[in-house]
Design a protein around this nucleic acid. Structure first.
Length: 314
DNA sequence: CTTGCGAAGTCGTTCTCCTCA
DNA sequence: TGAGGAGAAC
DNA sequence: GACTTCGCAAG
């Protein structure tokens, strides 16, 4: 149980296919930090997705785990914080990298550990069991009292659940094959239905490429507000080599000496362009600082005038 | 030979921690 | 003391 | 977190 294999969580595969299927179960995608807890007779330990120990950041969760589950277990779940009724990565963020338990508690950020899978329990490796069976064992293995919670799931109506999730502003839905064993690493048995939002943004510049990248690194984006172009962050993914080349050519034609943005934009290797091109950007949400989170380029909008581009949603 | 899937490489924001002037 | 970079969450 | 590209195994 000490081998690194146990600490390798299942990673879901992103898909656009939405479906309902009785052989699949559906869970709300929580916006927090993935954690696998391992207890081998001593104190439980929380591991991150990349096998880093997170005990110092979440001491109350380690404490709660120590009080139950027996001498040996391995379970999988997500550590979250709430902003109102929604799990919020931003709310959790002040805690994530704290290296001292006292300081972690002193942040005042309440955290919860939602468990959704069981890998080892009662002297048995459970990874080969079908998911439904693992979930049944998990439900009985712990007393779910805060900060420990059992992640609920649905057995049907995946599409309806997805629509409901997006309407409520959740991150999305994870679909899991009900009879599949636990898989370490990326798996097609876990699918991610993400709720995305998108809008048009003006391209006001670009950055130099790095490494093997050609053309440019990222596009600098903005929207009109109070008579100026407000900076909204960068987008550096969504283009293949061909698109990189053609966009770069269009940008060079529009290059200018001074920034079109209102206020300073401090980006290394920045080039400025006349704010004429409009890009369609898909992203997960706006950050507190008015930047795009998880942005990806979804195409050029020839039908939109740059001057008409404003921010659409809070 | 074609297809599929996992790994690696290049990008995003933000937080804490560490280094250095 | 403060700026800037690295590392690590997503 | 996103995406694209690449290599290798399976078919």
């Amino acid at each position: 149980m000490n081998g690194p294999g146990w600490r390798e969580p299942t990673l879901a595969t992103l898909t656009d296919r939405r479906f309902s299927d009785e052989d699949w179960i559906f869970e709300r995608k929580l916006d927090g930090v993935r954690a696998i807890c391992v207890r081998d007779s001593g104190t439980p330990t929380l591991y991150s997705r990349n096998h880093k120990v997170m005990d110092n950041a979440y001491p109350e969760i380690v404490e709660a785990l120590a009080a139950q589950g027996g001498p040996r277990f391995v379970a999988d779940g997500e550590i979250v914080a709430f902003d109102g009724d929604d799990t919020s990565f931003a709310a959790l963020q002040p805690r994530i990298h704290v290296s001292d338990p006292d300081r972690a508690r002193a942040t005042g950020v309440r955290v919860y550990y939602y468990l959704f899978d069981l890998l080892y329990y009662d002297e048995h490796d459970t990874t080969a069991l079908p998911l439904r069976q693992r979930k049944a064992l998990l439900r009985d293995a712990f007393d779910f009292e805060d900060p420990l919670r059992l992640s609920a799931h649905r057995n049907a109506e995946g599409e309806k659940f997805y629509e409901e999730a997006c309407r409520r502003g959740w991150e999305g839905v994870i679909a899991k094959r009900a009879d599949a064993p636990y898989h370490h690493g990326r798996s097609p048995d876990w699918l991610k239905f993400k709720c995305a939002q998108g809008q048009e943004l003006v391209i006001g510049g670009f950055t130099d490429p790095q490494g093997a990248r050609h053309g440019f690194g990222a596009l600098l984006l903005g929207y009109h507000e109070d008579g100026g172009l407000k900076y909204a962050g960068k987008v550096g993914t969504g283009f293949d080599e061909k698109l990189l080349a053609s966009l770069h050519a269009q940008l060079r034609k529009r290059e200018t000496r001074s920034s079109p943005f209102a206020g300073p934009v401090k980006e290394r290797g920045a080039h400025w362009v006349r704010p004429e091109l409009v890009a369609q950007i898909d992203f997960s949400e706006w950050t507190r600082d008015g930047r795009l989170r998880h942005p990806r380029f979804a195409g050029l909008r020839e039908d939109k005038k740059a001057a008409d581009v404003v921010r659409e949603r809070a």
